[in-house]
Design a protein around this nucleic acid. Sequence first.
DNA 1: CACTTGACCTGTCCGC
DNA 2: TGCGGACAGGTCAAGT
Length: 290
Amino acid sequence: MPELPEVETVKRGLEKLIIGKQISKVASDNPKSFPNDPNIVEEFLIGSNVVRIRRRAKVLLIDLSTDYTLMIHLRMTGQVVYVGENRFGAGHPNDSLVNKLPDNSTRVIFTFSDKTHMYFNDQRKFGWVKLVPTGLVHEDSFMQKVGPEPLEKSFTPEVFITRISKRKGATVKAALLDQTVLAGIGNIYADEALWASRIHPAIRVHELTKQQLNVLHGEIIKVLKLSIDKGGSTDKNYVNAEGKRGSYIDFAKVFRREGLECYECGTEIEKSRVAGRGTHTCIVCQPYER
DNA sequence: CACTTGACCTGTCCGC
DNA sequence: TGCGGACAGGTCAAGT
């Protein structure tokens, strides 16, 4: 899914599109996608205005004037797409996603008072939208345990090494995917950061030197920033708040490049399974033994 | 306890 | 063309 750069891109898009708008109506086809008490929805969502958009880890937070917040998790295939009045406007060819919504993946439709819409689409139905009091967002079980934001200044190499070292027996890839170690890394950026650090994903954390972990810390930050610059990665489903694809995938060094030549040494990129996930490596640049 | 695997869903792709 | 199985960017529960 959408990992940190993708959710950040959606957040930035929504900031430009829906701040100040008033929600006049909401409809959902799936209680799992929108498991909220209808009375609370009626009282605190309908008629509220969008005040602020935030992101914490891979969770999108839409703060409302009623002191309630829409928490949105896109999981694997979720999308949040705003469609304005002019569907056929500049930059939107007629076959653009925004001209086809709602479609059979649409789970929740928000209607604003100006008759424009925001769609929560989710093919696999793993994602969700929850309406919670703003003051209680941090008490959500996931928010309680999720680790630090990697792009905050306070995420120093020391903080990273201390936290990841708690997963000493796990493979380094599993540790990076562990959201309690640090927030926002998923399968794409785990593979990309490990390649850039010349570390094999199946090496155990306790086998890594402090120097290697220092390098990994820096590469995580670099790859996340680069991807945000490119508007995130679109492998299959991901689109930003305007329904457009991200381009980081064109700059990926290993992800989805199995069978192609490593940009560093020319060796064929291999695909294997580490931490139960498809994993892309260059076995020359990322030797299993160190 | 630490770590790994399976489940949640639907769609797509690949081999027979 | 049809069918079965594997797989897909996340997270949590259950299993070892």
